[in-house]
Amino acid sequence: MSDTWIEVCAADEIDEEDVIRFDHAGRTFAIYRSPEDTYHATDGLCTHEKIHLADGLVMDHIIECPKHNGRFDYKTGEAKGAPVCVDLRTYPVKVEGGTVFIGL
């Protein structure tokens, strides 16, 4: 499904259980590091009001929108209840040689 692997950042630039913003080719993404030290990527903007999720809080495998507390499972993109009802798109991620890549 992914055509190209795009370099995001060094793996240690994202804290455990945290998220950063990544912009590429006019698009914006959120890149996550889970408490189990796995990496994940979703679209950057919340499906409710287009707020950037990288300002939100990561708790376990949930990202919470900083504005209206809409919650998603960032591993699957699943919307976890009001006010969000549209799932978040996810993207494949790989870590090679200490660098995180997103598959677009």
Binding site: I51, H52, D55, G56, L57, E64, P66, K67, N69
Partner: peptide
């Protein structure tokens, strides 16, 4: 949203 995460 600079303060949002910490307020949460």
């Amino acid at each position: 949203n600079a303060v949002a995460r910490d307020i949460r």
